[in-house]
Structures are given as C-alpha cells and as structure tokens.
Simulated scan of single mutants.
Amino acid sequence: MDNAPAAQGRPRLRIAVEKVGPDEVTVSVRGELDLATADQLRSAISALLNRGAVTCIGLDLRGLDFIDSTGIGTLVVAQRICQQVGVKLRLTAVNAFAARILGVVGVDDSLGLPPAHPDTVDLVGVD
C-alpha cells in the first residue's frame, strides 16, 4: 500500500506498508502528518486491523518532516485502538525532530519511545 496525494505537485504524506513477518508489518510515514493528512494514516492502520492476521504494527517515522497536534493525536488513538484489539503498535524508528516533538508533548512513553539522549543526532531506534 502506498499513498501519495499531490499537494501543489508534491506529496504531502506518503505511507508505505511492508510485511516484515508472518503477522507483522511496518508502516513507513514520510512527509507531513497533520490535520490535512492524518486521516490517511488512520485509514491505513484501520485497513490493517480490519484485514486481520496482524499482531504487530511497527511505525517508522524517520521520514516525517512535520507533525501537528492532530498527527500526534492520531498516533495516540491508533496505539489505544491497537491495544484494545490485541495488536501491538510500536515505534520502530523515529527521527530526532519527531522524537523531540513527541517528548515535548509527553506522549513519547505511551508510544514506546525510549528516553532521549543528548548524543542522539538523527535516529532513535526503538527495538
């Protein structure tokens, strides 16, 4: 699944789903996760949950350029819904920008992001 709506000739959000195990997928999110695009991520995660046979969804946010409160809320709600249906949703990779934002608003722990370290420059791996 690859989702790339055009906004003035360039994609604002790209979502790619890759199967990484018999019941595990990684969802890579690139671009801007905000009010205008959060519904695309909600739809992608909902489709995975509705399809069934997935017990773990990894989120790769390395390519995230921007995230607003709607995007953050989408991640938090997705984590809660996944937990309710017995699917583990976890961050597998986060760039320094996204890690900082998630930490500032206080959702880093609930999304499984490890504590930030001063020497973290580009990527925080969560496995």
Score class of each variant (00 low, 15 high):
Ala7Asp: 14
Gln8His: 13
Gly9Ser: 11
Gly9Asp: 13
Ile15Tyr: 00
Ala16Gln: 09
Val17Trp: 03
Val17Ile: 12
Gly21Ile: 06
Gly21Gln: 08
Val27Asp: 08
Val29Met: 11
Asp34Gln: 00
Leu35Lys: 04
Asp39Met: 13
Gln40Arg: 13
Ile45Thr: 13
Ser46Trp: 14
Ala47Trp: 11
Leu49Gly: 10
Asn50Met: 14
Ala53Lys: 11
Thr55Glu: 08
Gly58Ala: 04
Leu59Pro: 01
Leu61Arg: 05
Arg62Ser: 10
Asp68Ser: 02
Gly71His: 00
Ile72Arg: 05
Gly73Tyr: 10
Val76Thr: 12
Val76Arg: 09
Val77Tyr: 08
Val77Pro: 09
Gln79Arg: 14
Arg80Gly: 14
Cys82Met: 08
Cys82Tyr: 02
Val85Arg: 15
Val85Tyr: 13
Arg90Tyr: 01
Leu91Asp: 06
Thr92Gln: 08
Thr92Gly: 05
Asn95Ser: 03
Asn95Tyr: 03
Phe97Trp: 05
Arg100Lys: 12
Arg100Trp: 08
Ile101Trp: 01
Leu102His: 03
Gly103Val: 01
Asp108Ala: 15
Asp108His: 14
Asp109Gln: 15
Pro114Thr: 01
Pro115Arg: 00
Ala116Lys: 02
His117Val: 04
Val121Met: 03
Val124Glu: 00
Val124Arg: 04
Val126Glu: 02
